[in-house]
Design a protein around this nucleic acid. Structure first.
Length: 267
DNA sequence: TGATATGTTATCTT
DNA sequence: CAAGATAACATATC
């Protein structure tokens, strides 16, 4: 499902397709997901689309923002003027019509996501709830170690997946980073050695960068605007039976989430 | 049929 | 009290 690299991919594609377009009106099909007030939008231009954690933010030219979260099963579909046989209506909860005749739909199978209309102050308040961006230049090894120390008593995997601690990392990338770093998911954050924390920091960032390059990974029903990403072909443990060295993986639950690890490679 | 899937948060527990 | 663990959310798929 969409984690940081997938959301980043979607944001880049959205920027490419809808930045600068003028929204003529918005159709709301499920007000649990899409803010009813969007119905009142007319003739507003999208200035820019950006990401923070796993949220996608549309900056409008009337000083307002659309804060959207795909959660687990959200999708965007953009259809230009020449559209062919697209079943965009399936699970559609909202539709943005642009002045040039193209449109963007938001589809949500389980309806966990949301699109909210906020002013700058409200947006900042929401975004400040998240921990640092792992790919930000300001996110140094020292800062990562400080977080490990602060959360020293929680499982390392749970900590990596907590958006209030670090933004954007979900079940897939947490498992991958731990495998590549040879760290057992149940380890306490505070128990990592200096070399382990350096390795984890480096691997985490490398994996996220590589996944963005591959336009994210497609497992289950995630897709970006263009279709599928390619990073699923490079996964080491998520959804796998054997690790890269051919050892059998063990699958357990940790914090209510399926977790695969290699008992021989991860200590 | 029921277990499982993911992100986040509200709520329970230690 | 605070930090950590877990249940809940809705629904498709196996």
């Amino acid at each position: 499902m969409p984690e940081l690299p997938e959301v980043e991919t979607i944001v880049r594609q959205l920027n490419d397709k809808v930045s600068g377009k003028k929204i003529s009106n918005v159709e709301v099909y499920d007000s649990m997901v899409v803010d009813e007030r969007l119905k009142k939008i007319s003739a507003v231009k999208i200035k820019n689309v950006f990401r923070r954690a796993k949220s996608i933010i549309f900056e409008l030219d009337d000083e307002k923002f659309l804060l959207t979260h795909l959660r687990m099963t959200g999708h965007f579909h953009y259809l230009g003027c020449k559209r062919i046989n697209h079943n965009y209506k399936k699970f559609m909860v909202g539709k943005f019509n642009f002045s040039d005749g193209s449109f963007l739909t938001h589809n949500s199978i389980r309806k966990f996501g949301s699109i909210r209309l906020l002013d700058r102050e409200q947006l900042d308040a929401e975004l400040n709830k998240y921990g640092p961006e792992p790919l930000d230049d300001n996110f140094t090894l020292k800062e990562f170690r400080d977080l490990l120390y602060q959360k020293s008593r929680s499982n390392i995997k749970t900590m990596l997946m907590d958006p209030k601690v670090i933004a954007g990392i979900g079940n897939i990338y947490a498992q991958e980073a731990l495998y590549y770093s040879g760290i057992f998911p149940f380890r306490k954050a505070g128990s990592l050695s200096v070399s382990e924390s350096s390795l984890l920091y480096k691997n985490l960032r490398e994996i996220l960068h590589r996944a963005i390059k591959e336009q994210g990974c497609t497992v289950d029903n995630y897709s970006n605007l263009e279709g599928s990403g390619g990073f699923q072909n490079f996964l080491a443990v998520y959804g796998k039976e054997k690790c890269l060295k051919g050892h059998d993986l063990t699958k357990i639950k940790l914090g209510g989430r399926g977790t695969s690890y290699c008992g021989r490679c991860q200590k």
